[in-house]
Structures are given as structure tokens and as C-alpha cells.
Design a protein around this nucleic acid. Structure first.
Lengths: 338, 338
DNA sequence: CTGTTAGCGCTTTCAT
DNA sequence: ATGAAAGCGCTAACAG
């Protein structure tokens, strides 16, 4: 591996000139720039990350703490991870992956100056990582909205509004009684903020619209789904029967039509369904789901932008909520006549 | 952040002594060790990663290139990722996450000395990353078995044997005609090595055991599954009817019982099923699947071990195959009498 | 517009 | 068993 001084020698300039050509931090004559660049590519030079970080206090690496918990939907998590990694690359950053069970990870990577900033996923209402992060004086952004962000930036999808839009859509279609199928009990129990907010947004929207409603946590298996549907529809098909479903549980969406068919319910004739899920799960079916899409790419990108902002400028801490949009597809319609 | 020389001063020793008590690379009197350690923890010292990597040519970071492709089962990928990260931590390494679409990622992280070694997932038979990796002269291990590893270490689950064990189990139970439901067409098309090997292992095992067999690629949706089952069972329930299924497609397992029930087939009375899947998907159901478990933790751990071996010793390149084991649970039985 | 140079914080000879 | 000191390769004053 050639070093910067070899490049300098080859180009007939000083190392600082090479450094400045590479960083663009001061003006360079066209002539020298060319020579340097030629030398760089001829020698196949690339800067030593450690040396750079030692001299500049910048590692060009972002830490990403991603949950690998049993109750989270890994494929959704993966989408966020992918989004963060690819957004980071646009800012010339790499991503160091930390997992929740590496308790001292936050302190380690930051005290060793391995990362310039941190992004934390799967935030809980009173997440114990927040005070530790806040102490750190490194740019950090939470994907999620905790009770107290302690001066950290936050970004998330507006899950509350997502539920509300879904409910309003069902109300507009004339539904009177709707149910919410949400995250696994464990997610609720630990107050993962998306789970809480989606559920409470639903509840409130139903109150506002005067709809009858019920909320149900559900695991990811078809057995779990069966149980929940049983609860929801067991009361018979009378006047107050549930005719609309909002499903915020990515794992269940693919099984839902079949499960409903199994209890004699057809979509959307007997029951309308709005999914709250990444667009690809909503459109995976031949008869795509009416859905509020979770824009993972956009959220991941925003998170990276926000760390970079705090790293490069004195932009203040912000809280960004990504607003939901409803895509009406094939799974919602007016409720059945009784 | 305190530096090593501050620690040295506080402990009344030289920086080299501090360095040596931290690395254990030379013997230190009990007395000095204590003093140094006391200073370290009192000041909350932790070494600057960049400085260390500059001086020692070690970053203590492993690169992990993980696929985020549409046709791979993300939750399985995530299990491997998690396994690699947690194994890496046991060797005091962190993990830098690279994605497939970051084409120059391999060269970047290695030429900048950001990583000490690389682990590459989701290997294809003639993976274009392999020659690039091989050129690098950095320890690298492939999770998968390409046609030509070009001198790189490989580790993987023995998918061929996994299929064989499954087939033999069905044959032993008396099944005469079996079918294989495998990876999505796209995985086969690009010759992801696990997909190829599982399929060809199945085929060969059937030939060896004299069983009638058919192979089917399948996407991850219940519609895909429906189609495949239709193909398999449409020919009626005659003499040569399929009575055994080997399913190597994690996404489908949870939907399988219901889908079979939908066409009037009950498990294991009408059809026996062996899953090839991570243990948690096999046991997620109330009636757990007979399965050959994919030991993601073990594979991830082996991959890390192998990079570290090549990093720290002159152990030769190896190829490790993790052998499969069958767990008979509730979904296999003798075929129905006709 | 360019060069000189003093570190950044650590590891590791070489001495003792 | 310990210390002194020479780098590792880069950045960013400072000096022209």
C-alpha cells in the first residue's frame, strides 16, 4: 500500500498538497491537481483510515445499533439497516454494526473514536441506552420517539398518524366497527415506541370517528393470527360485527387473506383490511393490500442526514416525523349490507 | 478522553509499560501492573482505535458483506449476521457492515486498512467477488461453497447432506414418492450455493434410495406456495402420489400446514414434511416440524474463528462443512395406506 | 498557491 | 522488568 508521501514524491509535490487535493480544503492549481490525481491513481493510493482518524479525529464510520430481538420483525429491521448503510455511503461513511446484547458497545466504539456518530434503532419509551448515549457528546440519532430524548435527535415514521389515516379511510367507507392487529405482546411490553404509538393512534382515531374498536397484540405465527381473528370475529356477525381491520404486523400480512378465508370471510367483501407495512409486503400479493407504507429508506436516510448535520454543522437537534400516506389498493371497500 | 501518556504519568511509568500491561506482550511485575490498571480505570482510559491501527496494522474490525437481495430470506440472513457479530465480539473484534450493492466496498475497507479480515455471505457458484477478494491478501472467509474458492477459506452448512438425511428419513418411513420445495427461482438462477446444493443433494438422495421425486423452486408468498403444491399434488392421489415433502424455504414453513389443509391434505397423515430451516422456525408452531436445523450461530462462529486463525497464526486455508442433524418431531410418519 | 513541520496516540524495537 | 525513542500515515496550522 503506497503512502501519501510516496504519492507526493511521485507527483513532485509535498504531502500537504496531496492531502489538500484529496480533501479539497484549499485551492489548488489545475496543474498540480492533475499531477497529484494522476499519481494517486497510478500508484493505487488510498488513505490509511487509522492515520486519518488519528490526525483528524474523524473515522468516517457511523455506528448502527440494531435490534436482533425475538419479537421484532427482522425483515423490516433489515430494510432499515440497508437504508442506513446505503445512505451512509452517500456521505462517504461506513457502518459499524452493533447489537443490543453488546452492552458496552456504545461506550467502546465511541471512547475508542471508532465512530463519528451513532444511530440507534428500535427505541423504547424509556430506553436505557438513551442516558448513556446522551452522556457521550457524540452526534446520535434515535430511530423512534422515546418519552425523553435527553437532547438527542429523533426520527421516525409517524405511526400514530398512520393508524389514524387507516381508520379514517375505513370510516369514510362506512365501517362502524374496526379492529387493530398490532405488534407482538413482547414489543408492547417493552414499549417499543412504534408499537405503542401505532396502537394508541388507532384507539384515538376510532374515538374521534366514533367507531367501535378493539386492539390485539399478535405474534408472528399463523397460530397467533388464528387466535386473534377468533377473538375478533367470534362474537358473530351481528350489527356490531367488525368489518374493518388495521394490521400493523408485517409477518401476518402474507397469511391474512387465507386465514380470513378459513373462517369464511372474504376480503374486501366481508372485511376490509388496511396494512401498515413496507410497500413490498403490501404489494407482494397478486391482490395487493390497501396500505400505509412504512418508508424505511427514507427514515434510514433521514437518520444518516441528521447525524451528518450535527457532525458538520451546528444545526440544532431535531425531531423529524415522516408523514404517512395511504395507498388504496384492493383490500378495502364499503362494509357488507346487513 | 485520556491518552496513554496521561495514564503513564498517573501510574508513574512509561508509555511502553502501559502498552505492555494492556497487551500482555511482556512480563510485568505485579506491582506495576496494579498501578497501571488502577490508573486506567480511574481515568477511564481507552485506547484510540486509529492510533492503534496506525501503529500496529490491526484495526480489530472485521468486514462482513451481507446480501440484502430480494430473493434471500432476510430473517435467515439476520441470524447469520447476528452470529457473526456476537462471535466477533468474543475475539474482541467489531464488525463493519458492507452491502452487496457497494461494489468497491471490498477494496475500500481493505486498502484503507479499516478491516483485518472479511467474511462474505451468500456466495454464488461463480461469485464475481471471489477473484477480487483473492487478490487482496487479507484473511477472508466465504460462507458458502463456490465452484472455485481461489485459495480462500470456506465454511457452510452441508446442505447436500441435509437434503439427504431428510430423504433417507422419509424413505425409512416407507415413502415412495417425494418432492422438494426449495429456494426462489432467482436464488437458483444466480446459483446461490446453498440453493444449488440443497436441490442437487435431494435429487441424488432420491436416486440412491430409489424414490420418485420432483423439485420445485418457490417464492416466499402463499400464492407461490399454492402454485407449487398444486403442481405437486395435482396428479391425483394414485399409486405414485407424493407423500413426502422436503422444504428448504424458511418463509413457506409457517404457511405450509394451512396450505396443505386447504387442499385436503393433513400433516403427517396424508403427507410427511421435513423442513430444512433454522431451529426457531421449525419449532415456532404448536406442532413443531421435523427438521434439519440450519445452525446459523455455529456457522457464523466458525467463519469468525477461521478469519482469526488466519490472522493470528499460519493455519492453512480450510474448508469446513457443518454437518446436519435431523430432529424428528411431529410432522413425519409412515405414508398413508392406499 | 504551495511547502515545512508539529503533532495525533499508540506499538515496538533497542537499551539498560 | 522497565524506559527512551523512533516511527506508523495523515492533517492542519504556520510560513511563505
Amino acid at each position: 500500500m503506497p503512502t501519501m508521501s510516496e504519492v507526493a514524491r511521485a507527483a513532485g509535490v509535498s504531502t500537504s498538497t496531496v492531502s489538500y487535493v484529496l480533501s479539497g480544503k484549499r485551492s489548488i492549481s489545475e496543474e498540480t491537481r492533475r499531477q497529484v490525481q494522476e499519481a494517486v491513481s497510478r500508484l493505487g493510493y488510498s488513505p490509511h483510515a487509522g492515520a486519518r482518524s488519528l490526525a483528524s479525529n474523524r473515522s468516517n464510520v457511523l455506528g448502527l445499533m440494531a435490534p436482533l430481538r425475538a419479537d421484532v420483525n427482522v425483515s423490516v429491521v433489515m430494510q432499515f439497516v440497508a437504508a442506513v448503510v446505503s445512505a451512509a455511503r452517500e456521505f462517504d461513511q461506513d457502518v459499524l454494526l452493533l447489537t443490543q446484547d453488546d452492552a458496552e458497545g456504545i461506550e467502546r466504539v465511541t471512547s475508542r473514536s471508532m465512530v463519528d456518530g451513532l444511530i440507534m434503532m428500535d427505541i423504547e419509551a424509556a430506553d436505557p441506552r438513551i442516558p448513556r448515549l446522551a452522556k457521550l457528546r457524540k452526534p446520535a440519532v434515535l430511530i423512534g420517539l422515546p418519552d425523553d430524548a435527553q437532547g438527542l435527535s429523533c426520527v421516525d415514521f409517524d405511526f400514530a398518524s398512520a393508524s389514524k389515516i387507516a381508520v379514517r379511510h375505513l370510516a369514510d367507507l362506512g365501517h362502524q366497527s374496526v379492529a387493530f392487529i398490532g405488534s407482538p405482546p413482547a414489543s408492547l411490553a417493552r414499549h417499543a415506541t412504534y408499537a405503542d404509538r401505532a396502537a394508541s393512534g388507532f384507539e384515538q382515531a376510532c374515538r374521534d370517528a366514533g367507531l367501535g374498536c378493539s386492539l390485539h397484540a399478535s405474534g408472528a405465527t399463523s397460530a397467533d393470527l388464528g387466535e386473534v381473528l377468533d377473538h375478533i370475529f367470534r362474537s358473530g356477525r351481528g350489527d356490531s360485527a367488525v368489518t374493518g381491520l388495521v394490521v400493523h404486523n408485517e409477518a401476518l400480512v402474507p397469511m391474512l387473506r387465507e386465514a380470513l378465508a378459513g373462517i369464511g370471510l372474504s376480503v374486501p367483501d366481508d372485511v376490509s383490511v388496511v396494512a401498515v407495512a413496507p410497500v413490498d409486503v403490501a404489494t407482494a400479493s397478486a391482490r395487493p393490500w390497501t396500505a400505509v407504507s412504512i418508508p424505511a429508506r427514507e427514515i434510514g436516510r433521514a437518520a444518516v442526514e441528521m447525524v451528518m448535520d450535527r457532525l458538520n454543522s451546528d444545526k440544532p437537534v431535531e425531531l423529524r416525523l415522516i408523514l404517512p400516506a395511504l395507498d388504496v389498493r384492493t383490500t378495502t371497500a364499503a362494509p357488507p349490507h346487513r
